[in-house]
């Protein structure tokens, strides 16, 4: 290599107590959870303690990174590392949902027809019809499946609009229009909260009027775990958007450098796509 090469300095992170705090938090959280589900009521307090330490860790750790960024310690290469990191994190999330979608497809297309074919099922449960949705042949519980064209359709509109508002906010940021950025983000947060409110109402309705519970056979199991984990991700996404909104109000980000903002929009769009799949395969078809 003959070309003149200007060596590039790397940013090296100083030692940190946040990771060990996070480990203690997670350990406390799961230890409390293990106690709680095995009949030790005090486990709930242990869980709360774990969750509080975890929250403190997240605030502290992300706060440190934001402060370093504001000091201008990060260069192009760090920015690219964050991009790779976020992309692969979202890929891991895709695979997490794939496990539950895989379970849904396996039950609907393979397990259920096979359950209806066997001699055993004809002897034990002669009246069982292997058709989706089902609570299975052996449960007494009866339920009404969730209809797609009520709240879920409204929620689809809400989430799709939130994807549009967050993109509009991004346009504002790129044109250095602060007002548009802040209004767009605030609208997105509101839409996220509306989605969560409607989802909570849907769950309440399912439990109180439709007989649709976690125990409602494999339909209830797949319905609540898929939509529940999605709802949890919307919650996290909304919190992330709130942080970005607060940072935008404080004057962070400029038209060229705003990966924190972009990462959250990537995450938000990912949650959006998962919802579309849920709407099609869990609610509609």
């Amino acid at each position: 290599m003959n070309a003149v090469h200007t060596p590039q300095r790397y940013y090296l992170a100083p030692p940190s107590y946040w990771p060990i705090t996070g480990s203690i938090a997670l350990f406390t959280l799961v230890a409390g959870f293990a106690l709680l589900i095995n009949g030790v009521a005090a486990g709930a307090y242990v869980m709360v303690a774990g969750a509080l330490i975890l929250a403190a860790m997240l605030v502290g750790w992300f706060g440190t990174v934001i402060a370093e960024n504001q000091k201008g310690l990060f260069n192009k290469r760090v920015d690219l590392s964050f991009r790779w990191g976020m992309s692969w994190f979202i890929f891991s999330e895709v695979m997490f949902f794939a496990a539950f979608f895989g379970a849904l497809f396996y039950i609907r297309n393979l397990a259920l027809p096979m359950l209806g074919e066997g001699q055993t099922v004809r002897l034990l449960w002669p009246h069982f019809v292997p058709a989706w949705p089902t609570a299975g042949p052996g449960l007494a519980q009866r339920f009404t499946p969730m209809q797609a064209w009520g709240i879920p359709a409204v929620n689809t509109l809400v989430l799709l609009s939130s994807g549009a508002t967050v993109t509009w906010a991004h346009w504002g940021l790129k044109r250095n229009n602060r007002r548009q950025l802040i209004v767009g983000l605030a609208l997105t947060v509101l839409l996220g909260l509306s989605f969560l409110g409607l989802q909570a109402h849907e769950y309440w309705n399912a439990y109180h009027h439709l007989g649709l519970t976690l125990g409602a056979g494999v339909y209830g199991a797949t319905f609540f775990l898929l939509t529940g984990f999605h709802g949890a991700h919307v919650t996290v996404g909304t919190i992330m958007l709130l942080v970005i909104l607060a940072r935008a109000v404080k004057g962070h980000f400029d038209p060229e450098h705003h990966f924190g903002f972009e990462a959250v929009t990537w995450y938000w769009h990912f949650v959006d796509v998962v919802w579309l799949l849920l709407f099609i395969f869990v609610y509609w078809l």
């Binding site: 359950l115 299975g136 494999v218 199991a221």
Partner: peptide, 22 residues
């Protein structure tokens, strides 16, 4: 393992044929 946890403690039937699981 989350599905196992749910079947153990939260009344789901992912892996129980009586509830349509497998």
């Amino acid at each position: 393992v989350t599905m196992v946890l749910a079947d153990r403690h939260f009344g789901t039937h992912f892996f129980n044929a009586a509830g349509g699981g497998d």
